[in-house]
Design a protein around this nucleic acid. Structure first.
Lengths: 180, 180
DNA sequence: TGATACCTACCTATCGATAGGTAATTAATA
DNA sequence: TATTAATTACCTATCGATAGGTAGGTATCA
């Protein structure tokens, strides 16, 4: 049985990804869970608290899925394939953008705690990717910022165009290049 | 002398880029121009009208700056450098994301006319880039969707991290690869 | 005189947030 | 073990602020 707190986080994550931080209200969440907005405030007093919790859970889940970036029995290619697949799976849930692309694109306008959580998402993800690429030969024409940027941008293109092919194309391109 | 209509578009473009479509109100715009919100409605009756006009002007300005994608006296490298520079310049204005990354990431939640305008931005930009790359030798490991995605994503990373180096790094990477 | 570009004044809907209360569960104590 | 104290998870009702939008008036100028 999923706790009410987790149900709120689920709704909020979906809502933020689809409509941005300003696009989802306490009342929207309450209505989706058949409760009152005051009860959502019981679990998360301020909107900033909710946003921070959503982003932190989202970050932890992604890094869990990615696994260790330096496991001895994985090749660079396999690690990169896991990263690409994580983004394709994220898009597939409701054909929506990455939470941290939506929030990060308007970062200066977010409450400080949410800003910091988004910053931490990218910091951790860049670190993971740099580590995953560490053993790649110099001929591999890939760097962490480029890979993450391309995936984030491709998700937005696919959402804006209503067409998964943009993400598919970039995903294939990145995977191909990682073959070395 | 800049018309009031254009002044409104200027404020709205900056505001949407910094805070998203829901993050800028008619009152915000009016306050910035020392007028009343009802007067903004005189120029743009509905928020949808304003959003559409902002995106269309933004798109036209970008394509004007890029110039012809098939001018005989330009190399692929020069064309791509123009594209990359356009994005760097856009970021430099207020260290903010691309308007159509901010809006496109939450496209399904936007009013239909704004959705269509954003869709048109990406359609026209992809077409421009494909044409610009048409003469590139097959060894050039670049395709239009990949280039645009990487630039869009890199802007978001830079905004979210408050650090221009992410965009700089990706820009250099793309420019280098276009050298052939 | 009629169009243009504003204004005042207002409406309805919704926002995040708070106060104060209640039933059910759990922990601590006599 | 029975009673009491706290805690959990909600509720109703309301707050001040703000959202997009409108009706109708006014000053300016061709």
């Amino acid at each position: 049985m999923i706790s009410k707190r987790d149900q709120i986080l689920d709704i909020a994550e979906r809502g933020y990804r689809q409509g941005g931080f300003a696009g989802l209200s306490f009342r929207d969440i309450a209505a989706a869970l058949d409760m009152k907005s005051a009860s959502v405030h019981y679990h998360f007093p301020h909107k900033e608290d909710l946003g921070k919790a959503v982003v932190e859970r989202y970050t932890d889940n992604l890094l869990d899925n990615l696994g260790a970036p330096d496991a001895a029995d994985d090749s660079v290619k396999i690690r990169l394939a896991r990263l690409v697949e994580a983004y394709r799976a994220a898009y597939a849930e409701g054909e929506s953008s990455c939470l941290c692309a939506v929030l990060g694109s308007v970062s200066p306008q977010l409450p400080p705690a949410v800003q910091e959580a988004v910053n931490s998402y990218f910091t951790r993800l860049v670190t993971w990717t740099e580590t995953a690429l560490a053993e790649a030969p110099p001929s591999t024409n890939l760097n962490a910022a480029h890979i993450i940027s391309a995936l984030q941008g491709a998700m937005i293109l696919s959402v804006a165009m209503g067409d998964a092919r943009y993400l598919d194309e970039v995903a294939e391109d990145l995977t191909k290049k990682s073959g070395v």
